[in-house]
Write a protein that binds this DNA or RNA. Structure first.
Lengths: 125, 125
DNA sequence: CGGTTATTTGGTATATCGACAAAAAGTGAC
DNA sequence: GTCACTTTTTGTCGATATACCAAATAACCG
C-alpha cells in the first residue's frame, strides 16, 4: 500500500540530468587515492610526479585519477616546463569533506557501541 | 624533477584506511538514483515501494540502492508492518549537496563561457 | 494455516572502473 | 636534430557496479 500522499511526481528527465551531474562530482571523490590527492592539493599545487611519489602508484594511474578530478571540475591544471601542476578549483572541497567526515564519525561511534555491547543501540535482534 | 619539498611522507596504511572509509560515503552518493532518493528522504521518511514508484525502477533495484546507502551509514530503516521506512541518518547531507552543487554551478558557468566563446576563459589553445 | 503485500536475496548479463605496461606526445637542454 | 624527462593515451585484464528477473523471506489478515 502506498503511503499517505506521494505529492511529488516521478523523476523527470531534467531532474535526472541534474542528478547525473551531481553524481559526477561524487563519483570523482569516490576513490581513496583521489581523496588523498584532493587532500594534498588543499595545501597547494602539486605536479603529477610528486603525487605519484606520494601515493606510490604508477604515473599513468595518477594521471588518470587527475583527469577524473579535472573532468568533474574539481581541479585545474597549469603547465610549467615539462611538469603539469594541479590545484583545487574550489574551496568548497572542505565542505564536502566535513560532511562526509561527520557521517564517518557517526558510523565509527555506532560501530564502537555495537562492539562494546552497549545494549539498546546496535541492530537489536 | 621533484618540486621544492615533499614535506609529507607517502600515504600510510592508517591514512589509506581513513580515505577508504570516506570513499565509502562518496561512493554511496555516486549514483543519480541514490542522490534522488537522498533528496526525497530529506523531506521525510519513505518506504521502499513509494521510492520505487517515484524512481520508476524495479523494487529490487531500489532495495539494493537503499542497502548501499544504509551500509554507508547515510540512512536508517524502521519496520512498520510489512513496510520498511527509510530516513536520513544525518542532517549533514545538505552540506554535502551544497558543496557538490557549488562545483556543478561553477562547471556550468565554465561550460557556458566556452560555448558562448568568451575569450580568455576556456581552455585556450 | 493459506493468501496477500512488502522487501530482500541470489542469479546473470552488461557496463564501467582501476591498475599496470607499453607506446605516444609534449617540453626543455644541448 | 637527439637526449632526457614528464605526462597522457592506449591496450589488456581482473574486479566491481548495476539492472532486471525469479525465488526466498517477513509481516499481516482472515
Amino acid at each position: 500500500m502506498k503511503s499517505e500522499a506521494i505529492d511529488a511526481a516521478p523523476m523527470t528527465g531534467e531532474e535526472r540530468a541534474r542528478y547525473e551531474g551531481l553524481a559526477t562530482v561524487f563519483k570523482a571523490l569516490a576513490h581513496p587515492t583521489r581523496l588523498f590527492i584532493v587532500r594534498k592539493l588543499a595545501k597547494g599545487p602539486y605536479c603529477v610526479c610528486d603525487l605519484t611519489t606520494l601515493v606510490g602508484a604508477d604515473t599513468s594511474t595518477i594521471s588518470k585519477h587527475l583527469s577524473v578530478l579535472k573532468n568533474a571540475g574539481l581541479v585545474t591544471d597549469t603547465k610549467q616546463g615539462t611538469s603539469v601542476y594541479y590545484s583545487l578549483s574550489c574551496g568548497c572541497m572542505s565542505q564536502l569533506f566535513a560532511g562526509a567526515q561527520t557521517i564517518m564519525r557517526a558510523n565509527l561511534d555506532r560501530f564502537r557501541r555495537i562492539v562494546e555491547g552497549d545494549p539498546g543501540s546496535g541492530p537489536e535482534e
